[in-house]
Design a protein around this nucleic acid. Structure first.
Length: 570
RNA sequence: CGGGGUGUAGCGCAGUUUGGUUUAGCGCGCUUGCUUCGGGAGCAAGAGGUCGGCGGUUCAAAUCCGCCCACCCCGACCA
C-alpha cells in the first residue's frame, strides 16, 4: 500500500477520552475510531490486524478439526426461552422488536442457535464428535464499556461449540481447544496465564480463562511463582499459614467507647491498632438464612468462596434493619461475641487472632481482648477470604502473586445443559437415544488485539509481533523530490509486493522526522529506509523496530534481507 | 445503577472563579505559495466554531441558575 493512496490517519495527541495505553495507541495509530461508548469503527490498518488474528485462529481451529460456519446475529426470543436464558441478566442482552412486535435479541453468544442446528442435523453417534465455530460480531449491552476495545458493546468474537457422545470425548475436545488456544495466543505474541474460572451464566462443570497479563486488565488473577497454580482472585485459595503460636497471653474482655467509629479504617486510626488484630463481622443473607462471616481486619471476604462454602444460590449482605434485628446493635458495630441463632463462619485467618478487637453489638461500642474458644465459638472455620500478595500457594506453599490481566479466551465444558433443553440427541451404537455433551470456547478477537498492544508497546509506539502486524515491512522514502531515490523505493516496493510481501510505502512529501515518528507509532516490525544519501552509495537501511537492530545492505540485496528478516521474526 | 470528573475548530488546550476590548483565542493538523529536507521545519497568506443541548436570569452569557445529553474514571456488574 502506498501511503498517499491509503486511509491511514495518525494523531500526534491521543484524544482525551483514551486512558488505557492500548486505547491511546489504537486511536493515535489510526487503527480505530469511536462512534459511541463501546462502539468502534475499525479503520483499514486496524482491520488488517484483526484479520491476521482471525487467520491464526482459523488455522489453529482447523488443525483441531473444527469447522467454520456463520450463524445469524438476530435471534428470535423463542429459542432463548427454550434454553431458559431469555431473562438472564448476566449476558447483557440487547433486545429489540420488529414492526410486528416480535421480540429478538442481537446475539451475545450462540449456544442456543448452534444447539438447535445440531439437534436438527445430527442423528447418529457416527457424526460425533463435532466442533463448529464462527468469527462474528457479538453484542452485549455493557453497563460500563471501558478501556477502548477491551470492553466494548460490539466486538468480534470467535466462538466454537463442540458436541460429544461421552465424557471422555468431551474431555478430549476440551483439551484440544486448550491446546489450540495456547498456540493461538503464543502465535499472536501474547503471554497468557490459564486460570480456573467460575462458569457463571454459561453453566457447566468446568471452565478456564486465558488471561493476558496487563496493567489495564479488568480481571485480577493470582498465581504461584513456583508451580503452575493460578486462579481468579475471587476463588483463589491460600495455603495454611505458618500458625506461629502467639506468645501473647489472653487478657480479659474490655468494652471500648468508639463513638461513630464504624469501619476498620476508622477503628485503626482511633485505637492505633493494626487491622490484623481486628475481627470484621459481616452479616449475610444466604438463601433466607442469616449467617455471620468473620474476617481478619486486613483481609477482604470472598463472596464467591463463601457462596461455595454455604452451597447457596443467593448471597447478599444484610441491610441495616436486619443487622439490628440479628445482632442487637447497629451497622458497623457487629461482633461474634454473644451472637445467637446465627451460623458463624470464620475465616481460617481469624483463628490466629489473640486478644482481638471487634464490635460489641451495641451502638458506639467495640470490645477488646476477644478470643476464639473462650469468648465465642464459630460453627465453622473455612477459607473464605480473598488472597493477598505474598500469601502461600495452596499447592506448593510458594509465594502467590496478584496481577491484573485481560480475559482473552474462555473455554467451558457445558455438560448436557443445552442439549437437554434444546433437544440435541443422537442414537448410540446400541440404538439408544442419548444427549450430546457440549463444550463452548470463546476468543475475543478485538480484545486480543488490544491485549497484544498492552503487552507490546512503548510510550509512543506499538511493537507488533510480525505475525499480526498490519504490514510486514514499512518502506520510508526520504525526499520524494530525488528522482533516483523514488525509483529505488518504487522498484523495491513493487518487487516485494510482487513476491507476496506486505509492504507499506510512505511516499508522502513529508520530512524525515514525521515519517519516522509515524513509523514508530504504527509499529511495523521491519523498516526499510531509502534516502538519497544511501542510494548514492547504492545502499538502503533496514531496521528491526522491536530490538533496534540495523543493517546497511546493497540495494539489490535488500529484498532477500527483508524476506529473511520476516522469516526470522515470523 | 451509586460516586467523581469533563464537554470551547479534526486533535490537544487557555478563557468560566469575579458576566462586558473576545468581531471567542493558542499549539498541532488542514489549504495555497516560497524556502527547507535523516527524528513531529521556517516564513507568508487562508479555511475551519450553533463555546454539548434546551430553557431561564440580565441591557449584555462560553462565563450565573435549572433541566437534559454525551464522554471518561472508580465501584457494582460482566462471554
Amino acid at each position: 500500500m502506498r501511503w498517499t493512496q491509503s486511509f491511514i490517519r495518525t494523531l500526534r495527541d491521543a484524544p482525551r477520552e483514551a486512558e488505557a495505553i492500548s486505547h491511546k495507541l489504537m486511536l493515535r495509530a489510526g487503527l480505530a475510531r469511536r462512534l459511541s461508548a463501546g462502539l468502534y469503527t475499525y479503520l483499514p490498518l486496524g482491520l488488517r490486524v484483526i484479520r491476521k488474528v482471525e487467520d491464526i485462529v482459523r488455522q489453529e481451529m482447523n488443525k483441531k478439526g473444527a469447522q467454520e460456519l456463520l450463524m445469524p446475529i438476530l435471534q428470535p426470543k423463542e429459542i432463548w426461552e427454550q434454553s431458559g436464558r431469555w431473562d438472564d441478566k448476566e449476558l447483557g442482552m440487547l433486545k429489540l422488536k420488529n414492526r410486528e412486535e416480535r421480540e429478538f435479541v442481537l446475539g451475545p453468544t450462540h449456544e442456543e442457535i448452534i444447539t438447535d442446528l445440531v439437534s436438527r442435523e445430527v442423528r447418529s453417534y457416527k457424526e460425533l464428535p463435532l466442533n463448529l465455530y464462527q468469527i462474528q460480531t457479538k453484542f452485549r449491552d455493557e453497563m460500563r464499556p471501558r478501556f477502548g476495545m477491551i470492553r466494548a458493546r460490539e466486538f468480534i468474537m470467535k466462538d466454537a461449540y463442540s458436541f460429544h457422545v461421552d465424557e471422555s470425548s468431551a474431555r478430549k475436545g476440551y483439551q484440544d481447544m486448550s491446546e489450540a488456544y495456547s498456540n493461538i495466543f503464543r502465535r499472536c505474541g501474547l503471554k497468557t496465564q490459564v486460570v480456573e474460572a467460575d462458569p457463571g451464566a454459561m453453566g457447566g462443570s468446568k471452565s478456564e480463562e486465558f488471561i493476558a497479563l496487563a496493567d489495564t486488565g479488568e480481571d485480577i488473577i493470582v498465581f504461584c511463582a513456583q508451580c503452575s497454580y493460578a486462579a481468579n482472585l475471587e476463588s483463589a485459595q491460600r495455603g495454611a499459614e505458618a500458625l506461629g503460636k502467639s506468645t501473647e497471653k489472653m487478657k480479659s474482655v474490655k468494652e471500648l467507647k468508639t463513638p461513630n467509629i464504624k469501619t476498620i479504617e476508622q477503628l485503626k486510626d482511633f485505637l492505633r491498632e493494626k487491622p490484623e488484630k481486628m475481627i470484621k463481622t459481616l452479616i449475610y443473607l444466604a438463601d433466607e438464612k442469616i449467617i455471620a462471616a468473620l474476617i481478619s481486619g486486613h483481609r477482604e471476604l470472598s463472596e464467591v468462596k463463601l457462596r461455595k462454602n454455604l452451597k447457596c444460590e443467593n448471597l447478599e449482605m444484610a441491610d441495616e434493619k436486619l443487622i439490628e434485628e440479628v445482632t442487637g446493635g447497629p451497622l458497623g458495630f457487629s461482633g461474634p461475641v454473644g451472637l445467637k441463632k446465627v451460623k458463624i463462619i470464620a475465616d481460617v485467618g481469624v483463628t490466629k487472632i489473640v486478644n482481638g478487637i471487634t464490635g460489641a453489638n451495641k451502638r458506639d461500642k467495640h470490645i477488646r481482648n476477644v478470643n476464639m474458644g473462650r469468648d465465642y465459638n464459630p460453627d465453622e472455620v473455612a477459607d473464605i477470604s480473598i488472597v493477598r500478595e505474598g500469601d502461600r500457594c495452596p499447592k506448593c506453599s510458594g509465594k502467590l502473586a496478584v496481577r491484573r490481566g485481560i480475559e482473552v479466551g474462555h473455554i467451558f465444558n457445558l455438560g448436557r445443559r443445552y442439549s437437554q433443553r434444546l433437544g440435541a440427541k443422537f442414537l448410540n451404537e446400541k440404538g439408544q437415544e442419548r444427549l450430546a455433551i457440549m463444550g463452548c470456547y470463546g476468543i475475543g478477537i478485538t480484545r486480543t488485539v488490544a491485549a497484544i498492544i498492552e503487552q507490546n508497546h512503548d510510550e509512543n509506539a506499538i511493537l507488533w509481533p510480525m505475525s499480526v502486524s498490519p504490514y510486514q515491512v514499512h518502506i520510508i522514502l526520504l525526499n520524494v523530490n530525488s528522482r533516483e531515490t523514488v525509483k529505488v523505493a518504487d522498484n523495491l516496493y513493487n518487487q516485494l509486493t510482487g513476491e507476496g510481501v506486505e509492504a507499506l510505502l510512505d511516499d508522502r512529501d513529508e520530512r524525515a522526522g514525521v515519517k519516522f515518528k509515524d513509523a514508530d507509532l504504527i509499529g511495523v516490525p521491519l523498516r526499510l529506509t531509502i534516502s538519497p544519501k544511501r542510494v548514492s552509495e547504492k545502499k538502503v537501511e533496514i531496521k528491526c523496530h522491536r530490538d533496534g537492530k540495523e543493517f546497511l545492505v546493497a540495494i539489490e540485496q535488500a529484498r532477500e534481507k527483508v524476506k529473511e528478516l520476516i522469516h526470522e521474526n515470523g
